[in-house]
Simulated scan of single mutants.
Amino acid sequence: MKVLSKFTARPAMDGDGVNIKRVADFMNTRFDPYLMIDEIKSNDQQDFIGGFPPHPHRGIETFTYIRKGGFEHRDQLGNVKAIRAGDVQWMSTGSGVVHSEMPLADANEGLHGFQIWLNMPAKDKMRPAIYQDTTGTPNPVVSNDSGANLKALAGDWQFADSPQIIAASIQGLAGNGAIADLMLNENGQAQLDLSAHQSVSVFIYQGELEYVDISGMQAKATEGQLLVIEPELNTHIKAGNQDTGILLLAGCPINERIVHMGPFVMNSQAEINQAIDDYQQGRFGEIV
């Protein structure tokens, strides 16, 4: 695994006082098409009980993955869904979505989940919104003989030594995005074929990874770090001396100018101003 660059998640707060860890880049888009990875991980309800009251989005895709606990999602399109452990939810917000995400009352053993933002190409930013989740279609899971367990969350995945394509039920993310949850046992390893992608990042949410850095020295990356890696036909990913969990984020860079303000990501300041006006004038609709 050749590491090109490394980032560390920083503490942040969003919604109604929800404590998160965030890796984001809205300026240089060094992990394009991805813009932001937020992780919520706490057994203390005070860290997330306020949830995310109604708020808008335009010009991005939000991808939510829950590992423990859950949220109730509501939006102006009429979707009302309980997103629980193991579930994925994808919204291609396009011209506009108003939604809320509030902790489930019966999810009282803590919360661990992610919300990932992907940029949308300019040609799609004003199309109608698309909503999809996996509450009725479990994500496919495959294992190898070296202590690796891969859950396909979006797009297609493949172990380098196997012809089997692991296809997630959610397809069509912006920038040909593909997302997977890879669990490795202590000193476990996986060989993945990532050659179909132009950009691949690895976010470590548990444990540690071992790799050789650009100077040829052995190195480790730990929980809360994001690595941008070289997409290769045979990418070797190896855990350290503890069980390790990572999110794999792959895709093709969109390579377009970005103007970002809060929940809106567009291509010019004029488009941002229009998004603000449209929301203030009620053109996004309301949650019923």
Rank of each mutant, 00 (worst) to 15 (best):
M1C: 10
K6W: 05
K6S: 11
A9D: 01
R10N: 11
R10H: 12
G15L: 03
V18L: 10
N19T: 13
A24R: 09
A24I: 07
D25S: 03
T29F: 11
F31V: 05
D32I: 05
L35G: 03
M36N: 11
D38W: 04
I40R: 03
K41H: 13
K41S: 15
K41Y: 11
Q45F: 15
Q46T: 13
D47Q: 07
I49R: 14
H55D: 09
P56V: 10
P56R: 09
E61K: 06
T62H: 04
F63N: 00
F63P: 00
I66M: 12
I66T: 08
R67D: 11
E72Q: 15
E72T: 14
E72Y: 08
H73F: 08
Q89E: 12
W90G: 01
S92I: 02
S92F: 05
T93I: 09
S95A: 15
V98K: 01
H99V: 05
D106M: 07
A107C: 09
A107H: 03
N108W: 10
E109Q: 14
G110S: 06
L111K: 02
I116W: 00
W117R: 02
N119I: 01
K123P: 01
K125Y: 04
A129F: 07
I130L: 10
T135K: 10
T137C: 11
T137W: 07
P138H: 07
V142Y: 04
S143A: 15
S143I: 13
A148V: 01
A148H: 01
A148S: 06
L153I: 10
Q158D: 03
Q158P: 02
Q158E: 04
F159P: 01
A167N: 11
Q171N: 14
L173Q: 00
A174L: 03
G175P: 01
G177D: 00
A178Q: 00
A178V: 00
I179F: 00
A180E: 01
M183R: 12
G188D: 01
D193H: 06
V200M: 03
F203C: 04
V212R: 13
D213Y: 09
D213P: 08
I214R: 15
I214D: 15
S215C: 14
M217V: 12
Q218P: 08
K220D: 05
E223T: 13
G224V: 04
L226N: 03
L226K: 03
K238Y: 04
D243T: 15
G245L: 11
I246C: 02
C252L: 15
C252E: 13
I258S: 07
G262R: 09
P263M: 11
P263S: 10
F264T: 08
F264Q: 06
M266I: 11
S268C: 05
S268D: 08
Q269V: 12
A270T: 14
A270I: 08
N273A: 13
A275H: 06
D277K: 14
G282K: 09
F284L: 09
V288A: 15
